[in-house]
């Protein structure tokens, strides 16, 4: 025992898990770029009230139609649209809608789908068959078609759009989580944990969830950018956020008439959609690499 005391090292400062992940995350330039872009969008969305009042986003002004973008050297950075509304204001109010749709519907789908998939893997048998066949049915319908069907049945508004998007991507999560859990349960370390006296709950919380997290986080990032795109397409098709409320997709839809004469009207929301989707995907990549200890150097 003396030997033990002699070489006892000074205790390494215990870093929290989040700090460790952040340390790894910082190393990726693309992931930091994604985070930067997304932060700008989030800040603009949160503090939208400082830049424009909610009324000005909807109120029309016939005297100020089609003012070209000033790019910072005038009152309308991105110009004004066919009703004389400030495009910049509509973009930042629209980002509230787009971002929250992306985040909320992804989280709902991940939680519902994840629970269903995990339960299917855990209980197996008939329950597994019923759940997974139902998921097969859902995933055999194209996502946008399913979302359109839900909106058509329930009516077009924000809540129904969320429901539609959630339902249409539950299947992906259920299948992902089910397969992850099935492979994990077979692993020796799960049996070792059981042999060590861990309860079922502890095994799930300590061993299964942390090990299945990285594919789920990755999938969440990719699908939330997909959600933003689908939400934009739905609005573009007139099934999502209804005009005059601002949303990137519906802005594209109304701008398409003026595509050739006033191209900035279609470029600005288009670029925003691309940037938001891209930045979230990059963040997803970064998180996936950072949470996987096997990729650490």
């Amino acid at each position: 025992m003396t030997r033990v005391e002699a070489i006892k090292p000074k205790r390494r400062k215990k870093q929290s898990q989040i700090a460790l992940v952040w340390h790894q995350y910082k190393k990726s330039k693309t992931a930091m770029f994604g985070l930067g872009v997304l932060s700008v969008f989030v800040l603009l969305a949160v503090f939208a009230g400082f830049f424009a009042s909610p009324e000005s986003v909807i109120a029309t002004n016939q005297k100020a139609r089609f003012i070209p973008p000033s790019w910072g050297r005038g009152p309308h950075i991105f110009g004004t649209d066919e009703y004389g509304r400030d495009v910049f204001a509509r973009i930042i109010y629209g980002s509230r809608v787009s971002l929250s749709i992306g985040i909320i519907s992804t989280s709902c789908a991940a939680v519902i789908g994840g629970l269903l998939g995990a339960a299917a893997a855990y209980y197996g048998g008939t329950f597994d068959s019923i759940v997974m066949r139902f998921m097969d049915v859902i995933s055999s319908i194209p996502q946008i078609l399913l979302a359109m069907a839900v909106v058509a049945a329930l009516g077009a508004n924000m809540t129904n759009l969320l429901i539609a998007l959630t339902v249409s991507s539950i299947a992906t999560y259920a299948r992902l989580v089910r397969s992850t859990v099935l492979t994990l349960v077979e692993q020796d370390f799960i049996e070792a944990a059981r042999a060590c006296g861990s309860s079922d709950l502890r095994i799930i919380v300590k061993h299964i969830i942390p090990n299945s997290l990285s594919p789920i986080i990755c999938q969440m990032a990719f699908s939330s950018s997909g959600m933003i795109l689908t939400a934009a397409s739905m609005s573009y098709l007139g099934l999502g956020i209804q005009p005059p409320n601002p949303e990137w997709g519906s802005m594209l839809a109304s701008a398409k008439t003026y595509m050739w004469t006033y191209p900035y009207l279609i470029t600005v929301p288009g670029v925003c959609i691309v940037l938001a989707a891209l930045s979230i995907t990059l963040i997803g990549d970064g998180i996936r690499d950072a949470v996987d200890p096997r990729l650490k150097d």
Partner: peptide, 30 residues
């Protein structure tokens, strides 16, 4: 009983440790 009175060592050490938890924590867990 499991782990307390009777402990078991498995055949393959490569797979009987949880890959995402530091080894110290895995011992602390037991």
């Amino acid at each position: 009983l499991r782990g307390g009175d009777i402990a078991m060592i498995f055949q393959d050490p490569m797979t009987s440790l949880n890959p995402v938890i530091p080894v110290g924590q895995q011992i602390a867990e037991a």
